[in-house]
Design a protein around this nucleic acid. Sequence first.
DNA 1: CCACCCAACTAAACAGCGTTCAATAGGGTA
DNA 2: TACCCTATTGAACGCTGTTTAGTTGGGTGG
Lengths: 200, 200
Amino acid sequence: MARRNQHSKEALRELALDAVQRIAERDGPHIVSARKVAHEIGYAPGMLYHLFENIDDLILQANARTVMMLTDTLRQAIQRKKPINAVLAMASQYLALAQQNSRRWQLLFEHAMRNDVPVPSWYQHQTDTLFELVEQQLALLAPEKSSKDVTLAARSIWSAVHGVCLLAVTGKLDVGGPVQAPKIVESLVRHYLLGWTLEK
Amino acid sequence: MARRNQHSKEALRELALDAVQRIAERDGPHIVSARKVAHEIGYAPGMLYHLFENIDDLILQANARTVMMLTDTLRQAIQRKKPINAVLAMASQYLALAQQNSRRWQLLFEHAMRNDVPVPSWYQHQTDTLFELVEQQLALLAPEKSSKDVTLAARSIWSAVHGVCLLAVTGKLDVGGPVQAPKIVESLVRHYLLGWTLEK
DNA sequence: CCACCCAACTAAACAGCGTTCAATAGGGTA
DNA sequence: TACCCTATTGAACGCTGTTTAGTTGGGTGG
């Protein structure tokens, strides 16, 4: 068989990205493979290589969707809140999303580049947006701080929250039960910001 | 060939674990495979399955060594310091080690269980020790806090520092150059502890 | 000293992986 | 109707983890 042309190139791409996320959620993130994805959408594995550079590219683009979903959610979490509460809401939303779709997040967190080329810039760019959302709130919270300080603080908070989400999603935080992850996030953000605003 | 008996079972195990770390450092963590490890020590791949349950077990035991090295280093970092400085020293030592042996740390951070059985308890136990080291210092720092509060704070700090190390080692923090990772760690610990000790 | 035994180890096989590419099939056009 | 051109396939290559039957050779009993 050839030239079915049932789907446009773009529709096919969407189909494949849907399949990646569906397989990850259904069978676990480490089950995702070019062959499984192709089978899931009823094509031969080779076809995928006309749509994506390689398996890293495929998974990365699927992960980009997850990041976009996160960005959208965080934007909504901010709405009309005071800076401290906005940052708290963003952090706890990050954790909530990661816990709700944990396998999708595992795909995001645990995917290590096989073709050891560095993370592409368009992806980096997308994650930078997340930093910026935090920076905006911090700038509102402490207008007297330099933009350098704000950048550093945003990166600190973000890395920290990311660390909690990672450990939570991969089950490495469950010593007192999985319930306390939200408490850790809140403790982290609240105390850091308290210390940060009181400084000097 | 069979029954060379050049090495005892225990010596062979050490040989294999050495090989894992050597290959990871030399060729990159994603190069490590049962076949490569076996070849590195001059045996057939099947032999490894008399020493280890599977490839996860092998890599996990190699990673356990990395964690032990970390634990030892952190213990030394504490010596005769005041609590705040002890925690700061531990955190920056964590980052320093991770950056120095980045590939070995990538093996630790990025290894996702293929046989999706949960992380074994002996491993969990070993990482718990790290939490305890932080808890001890926090208890000294704020004797009035409940042990519940101390546990929560230790977990917060540890997850946060872990998050920074992870992003630093995997190159996802390099927007203003890799130099600023230590600054982020210090900012994190210092401001969190300031906020935490001032609370209530 | 020899023969036997059993454990240590290997070689080969299986299934699955990412990736490439010659071959093909079938819709669109002349 | 016939041709073309491209979307798609199927098979191949070399890699992976893992299992297993089979072989080898050191240690021990006779």
